[in-house]
Design a protein around this nucleic acid. Structure first.
Lengths: 341, 341
DNA sequence: GACTCATTTGCAAACGATTGCAAGATTCCG
DNA sequence: CGGAATCTTGCAATCGTTTGCAAATGAGTC
């Protein structure tokens, strides 16, 4: 009387279910995994019972035994600017797309944000945890070398970031240097002659954008571009931009912002300081985030295809999980001309 | 000669390391877990070896044995508006804060976005996977009832969303109704009389904001507020807002947008249609996202304290993991007056 | 030296699912 | 009806770590 079948019997594991179904644990496992080796009727009976009791095989145990977790790690190193987290909607958007793509491929996503300065071991620790089948690193930050080290001994890793000649880790990213060139060319074509770059060049992606802009300036016979170091978090950035503007008032007539977020803030500050955009100062951003459409005037910017980037990251990672070794992928940036330059 | 100790010996598990250290697996386990039962010298030797070989205990195995994974699930149901994902920077910001808080407490974060319509079992499936110790649900979407059902049998769950009298699941969220009231009161105080609400009232949070606004209108003797259903994704929203404006041209002089994102889009459309803000039409948003500061003119809005929300979610979840049963927490919204109303 | 008591250790049984192997049950064919 | 071929199923080992229990060691006391 204590095991009336209609009573809620707690089914904690495959063995409980096996007992209920009157078969062995192995059979239940095979039935639930959808293998062909099990009789159709038996399978149905087991599936019905599983449904009825809301039973799902424990993924930890399964992962342990199969040596495969079906979880992909996504890690964001916050190296050069710890507070970027809140501001950078670019990374967050990329993350959203990654979640969609991975889900679609049957993987779960384990997210970790780390401050490499506090924890030099950040990447190995994640990989060595045994919880993930592979890892996607979002942004190289200032950790290029460490990522290179890891890449030598660990195959299923793909990185979003900048591509450098001869690097050993597989990276997906926009051609930042070309993007920087496009931005500067546009500023110059719009009439700007005294250019400045707004952003923190410690981050390798930003450095590349800056370098590209300088290439263009040099080639077109324009003087060197002034670097105006600026953090990404809105709280700090606003003040820093204001300071830059105060210091270099009339000496600038074209600004290339490392990010649309920075560009938008810069636009606000420019207005506050009484500079007309684009008449007095031209401005170009980077990313083409939704905000670029909504500023006044709307922002001329360099577009990165975030969705395509996410697709590529996942695709390459899956190939690597399957044993291939894949090449890096550099995506072309695209100049979007709106009203600020 | 094939096991020269200085040669890279692959240490795959605790047993390998035990062999190297000349002790048993159990001792290694205790040493690495920092238990007091192991001799100081032995521990040091083991730790040194572990470091040298970059060994870390497998979390899957550990989780299986201890019945505790140190992973918290974060799940985003995309019920009422599947494409909200890309746009809603509110959720993404919340997610960022959650990641920080959880990391700080020694938990990892497993992220999953689901479309409940395609998978009615979304929540049980996540919980039953055995991969997570507890779950944080971001947004109730249109899944209130299902969440209630689950809450009855599963304790370690906390939800971000709207609080309803007598509900059974533990929720953290802003007092949306009060927020809506504040917004409407501000619009009316600024002189608006014919109000509209911009947003999709299928989402329970938005419905509460709408209801709060209606309370205020009624109490102040203003006519009913017109509901203008609008999706959250920028692509669809822009067109929908334009259509609303075209249809109800002069019949509106005050708009309460369910979200700052919508408010910003609305501002752009209003400008496009030649309406002066705040002179012809007053506008109030919700959230106080960074963008609210940057629109032209800057947006009057109702602030939600996202960081505090994330802290509360994690705090309550940890308490529930420890066995407590916790009450819901309703956070007070705050009106931030800028220039649009 | 015999005794107790506290430290350290090893042993082996879990945790829950998967899977190679072999045995049992069926079917098929002559 | 015998025997081979094909399906199904059960058994038991395995994934890597943790932990209760008991044994071994060492220290301290009279």
């Amino acid at each position: 009387m204590n095991d009336d079948k209609t009573t809620r019997t707690t089914v904690r594991n495959i063995t409980d279910l096996a007992r209920l179904a009157g078969v062995s644990a192995g059979t239940v496992s095979r039935a639930l995994a959808g293998k062909s080796l099990v009789n159709a009727k038996t399978r149905e009976r087991i599936e019905a019972l599983a449904r009825e009791h809301g039973f799902r095989p424990n993924q930890m145990a399964s992962g342990l035994r199969r040596q495969k977790t079906s979880v992909v790690g996504v890690i964001i190193p916050l190296g050069h600017d710890v507070r970027q987290q809140i501001s950078d909607s670019f990374f967050m958007t990329l993350l959203g797309h990654l979640a969609d793509e991975l889900t679609h491929e049957g993987y779960d996503l384990m997210l970790r944000r780390v401050v490499p300065d506090n924890d030099p071991d950040w990447l190995d620790r994640f990989i060595g945890s045994g919880m993930i089948d592979g890892v996607i690193v979002i942004g190289q930050s200032d950790q290029f070398d460490r990522i290179e080290d890891v890449a030598d001994g660990y195959n299923p890793m793909v990185v979003w970031g900048n591509h450098t000649e001869g690097q050993r880790h597989c990276v997906v990213g926009t051609d930042n240097r070309l993007g920087g060139r496009l931005a500067a060319e546009r500023l110059i074509a719009a009439g700007a002659r005294r250019l400045a770059f707004l952003g923190d060049t410690t981050a390798i992606e930003f450095a590349a954008r800056f370098a590209g802009a300088q290439d263009a300036a040099r080639r077109l016979g324009i003087g060197p571009i002034m670097a105006l170091p600026t953090h990404l978090s809105p709280e700090r950035a606003s003040a820093e931009i204001a300071a830059h503007l105060a210091a270099h008032a009339g000496a600038i007539d074209g600004i290339f912002a490392a990010t649309d977020t920075l560009a938008a803030l810069c636009l606000t500050e420019l207005r506050g300081h009484g500079f007309a955009v684009p008449e007095a100062v031209k401005l170009v951003g980077f990313d083409d985030l939704p905000i670029a459409r909504q500023t006044v005037p709307p922002l001329t910017t360099v577009r990165q295809d975030i969705a395509a980037g996410a697709r590529a990251l996942v695709d390459l990672l899956l190939r690597r999980l399957a044993g291939e070794t894949t090449e890096s992928l550099v995506l072309p940036p695209e100049l979007v001309v709106r009203k600020t330059a």
